[in-house]
Every structure is written in C-alpha cells, then in structure tokens.
C-alpha cells in the first residue's frame, strides 16, 4: 500500500469505490447452469490497483463485466461509486459507464477506418464532450503514451503495443474513476507488456484512477496493490 500512497489524497481515505455483495451470476448452456460468479463479496477502494487472477474460466471477465455494468447479477448487489447499478435503466447505465468506467480489451478493438486521434475521441462522442475539449484531452493523453506524432495514422499502421496504449488512453478520455482491463497484455510481447504495466502505474499516480485488471500476467500481478484470485466463480 505504501508505494501507491503518492499525490492522490483520495487513495489515503480508502473510500470503497467498488462494493460487491454476494453476487451470483450463472449462465445457462443447454439446460446446464454454469455458475460463472458464485456468491462473491468484495470491496475495492478508490485508487487501488487490483489484479484479478485465476485459471481460465474462473470468472475474471464475468466479474469485470459486472463491475462495468455490461452485465447484471442474478442476485446480490453491486455498488459503484455509491450507485447501485442494478437499479439503473439501460440508458442511465450507459451514461454511468461512459463517465465512470473505462474499458480496455485484450484485442484492443480500435475502429480500423478511424485515425488514431478519432479512435481515442470515441468515448467522448457518447458523453457529448465538447469537440475542443476532446481534442485537448487526446493531445495530452497521446503525449503520455508517446503517440503524439501518430494521431493521424490508421490503426493498421501501428504496432500492437502502440494500439493497446491508444486503447488505454481511449478508455481514459472521459476521465473515468475506474479503469477495467481484461488481459490487456495478452496479445503483447514482454517489452510492450512492460510498457503497459508502467502505463497503468503512471495513470494511477497521475489521475488517481482505480484500476482493476483481469490477467494471468505475473508481471502485472507483481505491481498490484492487491491480488484477488478466483476459482470456479469464488474468491480463494
């Protein structure tokens, strides 16, 4: 905990920003019920850097999606930044996601026919962020990840690492309180992976963002404040 205790005062308050209470989420596949999340309770504080760990199929992605409001639990409550997201309408949930959550995916998912700058702007489009402000933030964020000179390029003209860095700053455009990343280094070599890990660290320090990463990557786990290991949908 010591090392994260930097400029961000909020982190010191240890205010829980993610509170998960007896959450169950199961999938029905061919009459068989698979409990992807099986009664998890968990609290994550503001500014915390948490890694979700566990073997394949243990429920890491499902948990991230529940936290991000992309999915809803069968039972139990999820409170994000003081809001019970189970009660939100689809519209409100989308607004909440746009403002509070930033998503990073294993496969980056940049739009191939948009230039990098535009790609990073996308979340701002959904929150109706002013064009000028958007450009300004893109410029600042690009500087952080060293892509300032690449904003006019199409994704196909960039390396995997560059793309993932762009995808990460895209997730940061709306200055979310929580950054959710699912195997962000799963498709990267070790050098690029290291850069991404540094970037998470930097983000947390600079913006006080709560970061939750689902990963098998021990290098990320090594830098986390807390490692939560899942097995069969439960924390061990």
């Amino acid at each position: 905990m010591e090392q994260t205790n930097t400029e961000t005062s909020v982190a010191n308050d240890k205010r829980p920003i993610v509170v998960i209470d007896k959450v169950v989420r199961s999938y029905k596949v061919k009459k068989q019920t698979i409990p992807a999340i099986n009664g998890i309770s968990l609290s994550i504080n503001e500014g915390e850097f948490v890694v979700l760990n566990g073997s394949s199929g243990s429920g890491k992605s499902t948990l991230l999606q529940l936290i991000g409001g992309l999915d809803k639990p069968d039972s139990g409550n999820i409170t994000i930044d003081g809001v019970d997201i189970k009660k939100l309408s689809d519209h409100k949930l989308s607004l909440f996601r746009g403002k509070t959550i930033g998503f990073v995916f294993q496969f980056f998912y940049l739009q191939p026919f948009l230039r990098l700058g535009r790609n990073i702007e996308v979340p701002g489009m959904f929150t109706r962020l002013k064009r000028k402000e958007r450009k300004l933030r893109v410029k600042q964020l690009a500087e952080i990840v060293g892509l300032s000179d690449r904003l006019n390029h199409f994704p196909a003209e960039l390396s995997g690492g560059q793309i993932q860095r762009a995808a990460i700053v895209r997730a940061l455009l709306n200055q979310p309180k929580i950054l959710l990343a699912d195997e962000p280094t799963g498709n990267l070599d070790s050098t690029n992976s290291a850069a991404i890990i540094d970037l998470f660290e930097q983000i947390r320090q600079q913006f006080g963002t709560t970061i939750i990463v689902a990963t098998h990557d021990p290098n990320i786990a090594a830098r986390a404040d807390r490692i939560i290991t899942l097995k069969d949908g439960a924390i061990i």
Binding site: D90, S94, L95, Y109, P123, F126, A171
Partner: peptide
Amino acid sequence: RRETAVFRALGAKRSD
C-alpha cells in the same frame, strides 16, 4: 455487432 458491443462498453446508449 462486436463494434456495437465495444461502443456500448465505451458508454454508447442504445439511441447512439
């Protein structure tokens, strides 16, 4: 579809 899903994750509403 996948792009729609990504956009939804990035905060897009159905109306968007």
